[in-house]
Amino acid sequence: MEKIRLRDIAEALGLSTATVSNVLNGKDDKVSPATRARVMEAVERSGYLPDRAEVLLGRNPSRMAGLVVNDHPEYSGHPLEDPYNAAFIDRLQKAAVRQGLELLVKTARTWEEAAQFASMWNMVGLVVSGFCDADYVSLKQTLKIPLTACDAFSTEAGFSSVTVKDREGGRLAGMHLKSLGHRRVTCVTTNLICDDLERIQGLRDAGLETDVFMISGDRSEMRRQFGERDFSRDTAVFCVSDRQALELLCILQERGIRVPEDLSVMGFDGIEPGLYAIPPLTTISQDLEAKARLAIESLSAEPAAHPIDVSLTVRKSTGYAKDIL
């Protein structure tokens, strides 16, 4: 691909190269906000961003940190409305303020988009959430600033990670269900890798047998699958996320399947909407305060792995196995 030049951007916008250069170098006090926005949008779209990194990094130290959230198809184009993401961003922003930082947030589908975003601004570091380990590794190899990866499993040197104790959370869930007489649990997941697999392995560590119910990440398809599933032989379902569990509770109510009398349902994450579900959702709660604090603090520390504690939150969606009632 032919290299994009400053002159190309200026000509496409009908501006002088001096105006575009001034915007890119922060000397834009005489440039209108609308023109500046046009330039920045064109720069990001053009792929000229990597050339800006050295210019930006040479300017005065920044007090900005970035967050990139994976715009995964399961969010139906609204990843920042997801209750878990919204709660994490809220705590991350507060943690950034305590460190004297401003937080810039972006959604992205690929690690390349995340790299472009980081290249646009003079950041002290970047927090990335919802991507896979290979993406984190590629991103770090591209960035010139510190990186903190949320829920990474890679042992690759050079970046920090804040990772929930997923397997321990699964074990706590398994011990709870086992104490209620459940011997076999159906596990709901969209994949069998990384954190999802660790959570299911934790159930098995507790001595439970497991069946895996693979569902689609697409919400409408997920609801269809829940609506067609035969739960008559199940006594308990463990969803690897609260979002899946909340969808399941709605479908079960529509189908007249009682929770927990006919079927116990349990989630993972501890998001606030679970408290208001019918019935309130039993879950494994993450310590989001610690997760956010460590994510921000890691940007100014030596790269390290930070495990995040989990805890069992028992509510009314789990009960004794129906075959022992």
Rank of each mutant, 00 (worst) to 15 (best):
K291H: 05
L13S: 00
V128A: 08
D82Q: 09
Y84D: 01
D51E: 15
E261G: 06
M123T: 10
A115C: 09
S241V: 10
G319T: 03
S119I: 03
A206Y: 10
H176P: 05
N85L: 09
A95M: 09
I251N: 02
D151H: 01
E112H: 12
L208F: 08
L294Q: 14
K27L: 10
D205N: 15
L104K: 06
D205C: 12
V55P: 01
A37P: 03
L197S: 01
F231M: 02
A290S: 15
A290K: 14
V164Y: 08
D71C: 10
V55S: 11
V188N: 00
I284D: 03
E302W: 09
V310S: 00
C187K: 00
M120P: 01
R204M: 14
L13Q: 03
G26C: 12
G14F: 05
V97N: 09
R229F: 12
V124P: 02
L252M: 13
N22C: 00
Q141W: 05
E302M: 12
G217Y: 11
L147C: 03
L299Y: 05
P303C: 05
L252A: 10
P83S: 05
E297K: 06
Q201A: 03
S241I: 07
A53C: 09
K3P: 08
R224N: 04
L6A: 02
P146C: 02
S298F: 03
G77S: 11
E247K: 04
E11P: 03
S264W: 08
Q116F: 10
M64H: 04
C239S: 10
F238D: 02
A305Q: 15
D151P: 03
S220P: 02
L56C: 02
P33H: 06
T107F: 00
Q225V: 03
E247L: 13
C194F: 14
S129G: 05
D211P: 10
R315V: 10
G47C: 11
I193E: 12
W121K: 07
A236D: 11
T155Q: 14
N122C: 05
D218G: 09
E81D: 15
G26H: 13
L203A: 06
A301W: 11
S154K: 04
Q93K: 12
Y320W: 12
Q141M: 08
S119R: 12
V128L: 06
S179I: 08
A295Y: 08
